[in-house]
Design a protein around this nucleic acid. Structure first.
Lengths: 222, 222
DNA sequence: ATGAGGTTGGAACGGCGTTCCATATATGTC
DNA sequence: GACATATATGGAACGCCGTTCCAACCTCAT
C-alpha cells in the first residue's frame, strides 16, 4: 500500500548527457563563463554532483560538448554562394556571430584546439576552398590560416565580453586601456597614438571582416 | 601600495615586484601554467602570501606583468629589414618564438587582450606598416588583422604545449585527434580526410608563416 | 625612546572540481 | 515472483586554490 519514504529524494525525469549539456549552455549564456560550476548545475538540475559525473567525465568534457553543440548549429545551414570570397565571408561571419552570441565557446575553442568543434570549423572552411578551385597543395595552409584567424579573433572577443559585461561604456574602456599602453613613454608608441581614435571607435565585426578579406586576397590572387 | 624608491640602500634580498615577477616567470617556464600558485610562489620565495600581495594586486596582475616582461624582450631588438614582407615576417617570428618559449604568455594574451603587452605588439607591427608605406587609413585594419592572427596562433600553441607536455608522440596525438573528428560520420568530413596527413605532419612555425604571408599578400598587393 | 607607517609571514575563509559511498531503480535470469 | 547484477542518483567529504585578515616586525623622523 503505502510506499516507504525513501531516505533521499529522487527524480522522476531521467538525467542524460543532452539534458546536462543543455542546462550548461543555458547557464553559460545567461550568466557567463564563470557561472558554470557543478554546484550551480546541481541546483539548476535539482540533483547531486555524483549524478552529473555519471553522465559527464569532467567540466572540460562538458564545455567541449556545449561548444560542439553551438558550433554544429552555426555551420549547419550555410547558403551556397557562387563567389569565392563571399562564400568565405559567409562561413567566417556565421562563426563570428555564433561565438559572439556564446563567448564562452570562443574561449574554450582556443583553450582546447583539438576538440570536435574545431573539426567542424576546419571542414566548413576547407570545403569552400576546395569548391572554389584552390590548388590542392595550398588548401591545407589556407584553411589553417583562416581557422587560426577566426578562432583567434573569437577568443579575444570572448575575453572582451568577459571584461565589458553589460552596460560598461565601451569607448571609455578602450580609451583608458590605450592610454595606459602609452602613458609610460608616449614617444615609443607613435603608431598606437596615431590610430588611437580608430582603436576606440572600431567595430569588432567589421575589423574581423577586414582580416578575412586580407587573407582571401592572398588566397584568391586576381 | 605604491612602491617608493627608498632613500637608503636596502638589503638585496628584500621582496619587490620585480623579484616576484622574476620568480613567477621561472616557475611558469619550468613547470607550466598550472604550477604558478601563490603557495608555490611563497615556498619558492621563502615568504608568506601576505607579503606577495603587498607588492602585487592579484594573480592576474602578476601574469600581466610576467607577460609584459617576456614580450618586451621579444620586440626589443628587431633588426631593420628593407623588404616589407621580410620585416613583417621578422616581427611575427620574433613573437611566435617568444610565445613558443613561454606558452603561458600566449594564453594570457588571449585571456586579457588589453594588457600592456598587447600595446607593444600592436606598436611593433603597426610601425612596420607605416614604415613601408601602407596607406594611412588602411594601417589600423591591417595591423589589427596581423595582431589578431599572431595572438590567435600563439594562444593555440600555448594550448598545444599544455596538451602535449614533454615526450608525448605528437604525430600519434594529432592522428587520433583527427580520427575522433571524423569517426562519427566520415562522409561529412571529406576535406579533413583529404588533408589528414598534412595535419598530422605539419610544422606549426611553418604554417604560422603561411598565414603571415597570406595576410601580407593582401596588404602589399603587387 | 617612541610612535607611525611600511612590510612580513602565516592562519583562516569561502569556493571550486572532483571523489567516494550508501542507496534507489531498472534489467535480465531462473 | 525472487533474486543478482548493472545502472543511476544525491550528498558528504577531500584537497587545492586565490584571497583576506591580522599580529608582529622593522625603519626612520622626531
Amino acid at each position: 500500500m503505502a510506499k516507504r519514504k525513501p531516505k533521499t529524494e529522487r527524480r522522476t525525469d531521467t538525467l542524460s548527457k543532452e539534458r546536462i549539456v543543455e542546462a550548461a549552455i543555458e547557464l553559460l549564456d545567461a550568466e557567463g563563463e564563470a557561472a558554470l560550476t557543478f554546484r550551480a548545475l546541481t541546483t539548476h538540475l535539482a540533483t547531486g554532483s555524483g549524478a552529473i559525473y555519471w553522465h559527464v567525465d569532467n567540466k572540460n568534457e562538458l564545455l567541449t560538448a556545449a561548444t560542439h553543440a553551438v558550433i554544429t548549429r552555426a555551420v549547419a545551414d550555410l547558403a551556397r554562394v557562387s563567389d569565392p570570397r563571399r562564400a568565405i565571408r559567409a562561413v567566417a561571419l556565421a562563426l563570428f556571430d555564433a561565438i559572439d552570441a556564446h563567448p564562452w565557446a570562443g574561449a574554450h575553442l582556443s583553450r582546447e584546439p583539438w576538440q570536435p568543434a574545431m573539426g567542424l570549423i576546419f571542414e566548413s572552411v576547407g570545403a569552400r576552398l576546395q569548391a572554389f578551385g584552390v590548388a590542392a597543395r595550398a588548401q591545407f595552409g589556407c584553411a589553417s590560416a583562416l581557422v587560426s584567424y577566426i578562432v583567434g579573433v573569437a577568443s579575444q572577443n570572448a575575453a572582451n565580453a568577459r571584461l565589458l559585461p553589460r552596460d560598461t561604456d565601451r569607448e571609455a574602456f578602450l580609451s583608458t586601456a590605450v592610454a595606459r599602453w602609452v602613458q609610460d613613454d608616449p614617444t615609443r608608441f607613435p603608431f598606437v597614438q596615431r590610430v588611437a581614435a580608430q582603436l576606440r571607435d572600431h567595430d569588432d565585426r567589421q575589423q574581423f571582416l577586414v582580416g578575412i578579406d586580407l587573407i582571401s586576397s592572398g588566397i584568391f590572387r586576381p
